[in-house]
Computed example of a mutant assay.
Amino acid sequence: MTTDGVLIGRLLDQAGLEADGAATPMGGPGELNRHWLVRTRGGDRVVARVFGWPFDDVEPVDRFAKEAWLLGRLADAGAPVPRPLARVRAEEGAALLLTWAPGRPLGDLSDRDDAWQAAGRALRAVHDTRVAPLWTPGVVVDGGVRPFAGGWGGHIAAQVELQAERLAPHRPELAVQLRRAVAVVRGLTPWLDRRPVTVLHADAHPWNVLVDGTTATWLDWEFAAVGDPHYDVVRMFLGRMKAIGAPPAAFLDGYGGSPPEAARRVYELHYHLWMANDARHFAHRATYDDAAAYLRDLSARLDALEAAPPTGSTAAARDSKGW
């Protein structure tokens, strides 16, 4: 029996379930974890999520424990996420048994406005879910949150600075503009700190949400954080495994609002600098092409960010549900 098979067997035992046949590997764009579809004797389907970490450094957060804890609380609150049924950590590795969600990845349904709208509604439902004690900006960990040392604004500014420093040796022609980018975002830190915060997916993209008709389920919460909900919204415009274009207006209609211009531009800057660095290490994705195009126009992008009013749309972010 394979290592994953051992873990799957233990998960099923813990959940009091029996498999009806061998587990089937599930494909997907993820590079860290493995997923298996298991059909049970009772006629149900469940998913075994086996965690991996193919890097030399130590995981900064115990993703397995974090996701088991967070998904349980989100599911209990009615959020559209899988529910954990069992968890196992052993010599063979760590794995969760999750409820199966119907549907197809939104990235494979990108020509359908109704699919985008369903994904937007589901993301808003998650953002509207309140999970104690996740009130402070930070990284979600098992049992709570590890606060960002500088708050939400300080975190974004520090990330922009980190990515700029990593990129500068490889793009010396951008050195002046990269220093300018750091200064511009540092100047917006107080405003970013006043943004509303909630539980974030923090890796929102069209292949991390399954759509089935008018409903959707958000998957893969291993990088969840607490911060500005519009960070996830902006990420839905930028995260691309393959070129599918920007979301239609139906996505924002489903979500129920648009990010303020200043927030959108700050999060775009952060994401594109990050992806420009990732492009040197990972297999090609469409988002790397978008990052390259963004950097070719970096000076003008920074001009637009400096001109973007850091207030303006803030009130629109606070709707009847408490933002």
Results as ranks from 00 to 15, higher is better:
A15C: 09
L37F: 08
L192M: 14
F251H: 03
K66M: 15
L134N: 06
L98G: 01
L162M: 09
D56E: 15
G21D: 09
V140L: 13
A181N: 12
T215D: 05
P29I: 10
A225M: 14
G5S: 00
A216Q: 05
G257V: 10
G138F: 10
V233A: 09
A22R: 08
L70F: 14
L32K: 04
R318W: 04
A249Y: 04
G143L: 01
D290H: 11
G103W: 07
P25T: 08
D228R: 14
Y294V: 12
L188S: 15
A202P: 02
P229S: 10
V199E: 04
V145C: 12
A308F: 07
G28N: 03
G21V: 06
R83D: 12
W69L: 11
P80W: 11
Q159M: 12
G107P: 08
G93F: 01
P102E: 12
V141L: 14
V141E: 09
L74Q: 10
A204K: 05
P147I: 10
P80L: 15
G27V: 07
W221R: 03
L37V: 13
K321A: 12
R87I: 04
D128P: 00
D203E: 05
R121I: 02
T2P: 14
V6A: 15
W323R: 12
I244K: 11
V226Y: 10
G21R: 15
I156Y: 05
V185I: 14
G256R: 06
H205R: 08
Y271S: 06
D212L: 00
W191M: 15
W116T: 04
T189A: 14
A249W: 02
R104K: 10
D108R: 14
A276C: 06
R285G: 02
T3N: 08
T99C: 02
T2L: 04
G245L: 12
M1S: 11
V199R: 00
G227C: 12
W69N: 10
A149G: 11
L7V: 04
G322C: 01
G256W: 03
H127M: 03
L273T: 06
V81H: 13
V126N: 01
A183K: 09
D108N: 11
